[in-house]
Design a protein around this nucleic acid. Structure first.
Lengths: 224, 224
DNA sequence: GTATATTTGCGTATCATATACGCATATAAT
DNA sequence: ATTATATGCGTATATGATACGCAAATATAC
């Protein structure tokens, strides 16, 4: 009676590139939902922790190694999987997409990035899981500087601004946004400048994680 | 290999009464950790959803029926349970403690409320689970009006204020706090007044849930 | 009965922060 | 040389947070 529930992990991994937020999906090799797109994930092994299971499955099915990972939610409805009772612990991850070459194997035929506005039909209850992950991303970005996980180590300020307008889905005043971020002192301005097409060249910035943790310890919140 | 992981739910249920925040615990009847205090909870049955499992276990072990319940976090470290690999989905609940007479049965010898500042030694990793739940409670109360779940239907304003000072662990200006809550228009002022000992009698208030959901839909956040 | 302590209810002054927006500067395209 | 575009810096105004004063209504002490 107790021992018939199976346990899986699934990962909703977001990437960002020049105004595009995408999710990492795999094409299933086996039944059920053979040939359908799904979140990377699979069964938890008895001798590994949950985070290890997610990282292993991600690595196996997509070749991606994650730099930011947190637990999202556990989905356990009785009928969510046709194979029987399967409870899945979903994780939420962020990577810089151009940092990895996708490489599918084991249970996946293919691994691909999909724009979150143009997702294919998804297996199981994965559509719902992605929706909840998107809400988490949008909510979280307003009070924690997780956005930096999606940008290159060194980036022009306009990249950060573009990321925020994309994620929040609304315009933000460029000058006030810069004032706010600058006042937090979590960015280091580098000497180097870059010119992107037209316009005055801008400085490159990098995220000062040390400074951020100091602020966080002191109880200061990052708020947009 | 797949089928040896077992699944449980645990509930961290908070109650509040006149300046005291307490957690509901049960004394274990069987091994492991026989006679130790632990969170109410137990194995998930194959044909019930996770929320149903929590509510069933709470009802069986303590007699409490919950009015506010949300998922907290899933704990899955390999060695967290001496019986083998047991993954537990923890829930977070709020009740008005005087609304129920505690009644232990099945796996519990006893069920009792404990002040969060004076908890006994707990079984498994339940101390950690309680800590995370307390952080969630303190964080959540500043941006969602969950505090009302802990008060009677009709309450004097000073009860709400006391609850917040207790939960936040700091003094708040009584007049500014009232202005802030009043401006949200989520409270209905009733005609009735109560006198608690000395001092001018105050109106009773009730929480207008309908109005709150309207505000929430419109994107307005409750913030202390 | 009168004075005092206590709690409630309502107000206003001040300070900090968010928002709106003006404008000079440095580059690419025409 | 001119125009379009992106950057960098500034200031005025509106909004909201905080500090705090004080009258009203009650219980308690004398």
């Amino acid at each position: 009676m107790k021992n018939t529930i199976q346990l899986t992990v699934d990962a909703v991994v977001f990437g960002y590139e020049s105004g595009n937020i995408s999710v990492l999906l795999v094409k299933r090799k086996y039944e059920p939902y053979k040939n359908a797109w799904a979140l990377p994930g699979g069964f938890v092994l008895e001798n590994e922790n949950l985070e290890q299971a997610v990282e292993r499955e991600l690595s196996e099915e997509t070749g991606v190694k994650i730099n930011y990972l947190e637990q999202l939610y556990t989905f356990g409805d009785v009928a969510r999987d046709p194979r029987g009772r399967v409870v899945s612990i979903a994780y939420f991850g962020l990577v810089k997409p151009n940092a990895f070459k996708l490489h599918a194997s084991t249970d996946a035929q293919k691994a691909e990035w999909f724009n979150i506005a143009q997702l294919p039909k998804l297996a199981f209850d994965h559509k719902k899981i992605v929706q909840i992950a998107i809400e988490r991303l949008q909510g979280k970005i307003t009070y924690e500087p997780i956005g930096f996980e999606l940008l290159d180590k060194r980036f022009p300020f306009s990249d950060l601004e573009k990321l925020y307008t994309t994620l929040l889905g609304r315009e933000i005043d460029r000058r006030n946004f810069k004032k706010k971020i600058t006042s937090l002192k979590v960015l280091d301005e580098l000497d180097e400048k870059v010119s992107k097409g037209r316009g005055r060249p801008g400085s490159l910035f990098s995220f000062n994680q040390k400074r951020y943790f100091q602020l966080k310890k002191a109880g200061i919140i990052f708020e947009i």
